[in-house]
Design a protein around this nucleic acid. Sequence first.
DNA 1: GACATAACTTGCATGCTATGCAAAGATGCA
DNA 2: TGCATCTTTGCATAGCATGCAAGTTATGTC
Lengths: 232, 232
Amino acid sequence: MSEKSAPGGGLRERKKRATRAALTEAAVRLAAEHGAEKVTVEAISAAAGVSVRTFFNYFDTRDDVFVLTDAETGARVRRSLLDAPADLPPLLALRDAMAAELAEAEQQHELWRLHGEVLRAAPHLMVRSLSAHLADETELAEAVAERLRSGPGTRAPESAHAPAGAPAAPPDAGCERRKALDLYPRLLAAVAVTAVRVSVDHWCARPEERAFRDVFQEVFAHLAAGLPAPPA
Amino acid sequence: MSEKSAPGGGLRERKKRATRAALTEAAVRLAAEHGAEKVTVEAISAAAGVSVRTFFNYFDTRDDVFVLTDAETGARVRRSLLDAPADLPPLLALRDAMAAELAEAEQQHELWRLHGEVLRAAPHLMVRSLSAHLADETELAEAVAERLRSGPGTRAPESAHAPAGAPAAPPDAGCERRKALDLYPRLLAAVAVTAVRVSVDHWCARPEERAFRDVFQEVFAHLAAGLPAPPA
DNA sequence: GACATAACTTGCATGCTATGCAAAGATGCA
DNA sequence: TGCATCTTTGCATAGCATGCAAGTTATGTC
């Protein structure tokens, strides 16, 4: 797995990363081989060389081991969104922010493909994986609102970085805050996340036909045009 | 619960509906009172006056009891979509089809509100509920594709009803078929489902502020316009 | 009305998922 | 080396989920 990312830290941290990596890798391999639903936590733990209890020290849920999203992805997208040129329409700013992130992911082509395979074979896990993105959605909507608030032309490019270190909101904290959000930012964030999902899903179904980039761009072109009926 | 819908059938069917209704009602009430995650299957079953085993005869999963979607909703929306005037743009046809369905749901105002409360308090269940809609999404995408195929002006209004009785596709059957679907129908279906979710969610957060209908219409107006930045 | 059939419910047995707790082991640092 | 801290682990416990066989209840027919 990504052994090189953030190589620093002491032995402890490296071991933790190794254990987590071993668990996810074992999980994905076993899932690819025997089908995702037939893989028990016991099997994953055994393959990774740790106890069942330790598995649950790393993942809240069995299914969480199949959600291969980087926890920092959302933060990077939001920052990129806020740093985009002020005159770029929100939809396009969001498109570019996500495209940049996905370009990185596309480089780990092999792993991504395998992951896609597993998820598509198990809709249940696809849903689970989406839930991870849903958590992002509220924060993403806030970023959109922030971008709109400091409107086009009004915004000083440097002042826009989120209110310093918002320290990893506790899970479900978005529920109350959600009340304060306007409709448009929520809609844009939700639609963008959906667009990414559809792009990935469509591309996974026929990876050889078109580059992912093209699918992604076409999706956002449809959205920007207001989803008119395409030419036959 | 909805005791009147499809009142027919023998005693057996009525009993089944009653049992299912009792289970969902008990579940929602208990969840509203004690928090959704604190409600066990045992408690729900006891409150509904059946055994735990019977609960699992009605729902595959504990969480499924909180998914209050009518199984026929999707079918009605698809039919409505195919029956819409041929010159109506796909996005608007879908909007109207969904609006008609939601108008009915809005009448059971009380239950809908309570359900919304429970789901918003438990994102986990919101996700689960979405998965039910996701199942619809593929079939909805097929309906969109069907509508496009028999293009504007080409379509004989009567010939469009789905290929007779597609007999309740087995769960997950959509995964293979998905390969055959074009990008645009999938995108439109996914975006529309997302739009409904955002509308409902936004409206639930401030039910007194605006009619649901208005929120819904505004969302689709945003989409049809290509999601430009709204005026401040 | 009685009967055979099919459908529904139930309890029991079993296995997987998930959490709390306390003891044992590994790591970091002086 | 030795202490403080973090991690792993086994054990106990509870909830989730399924299969099976036996008991109960509708349905349709004679």
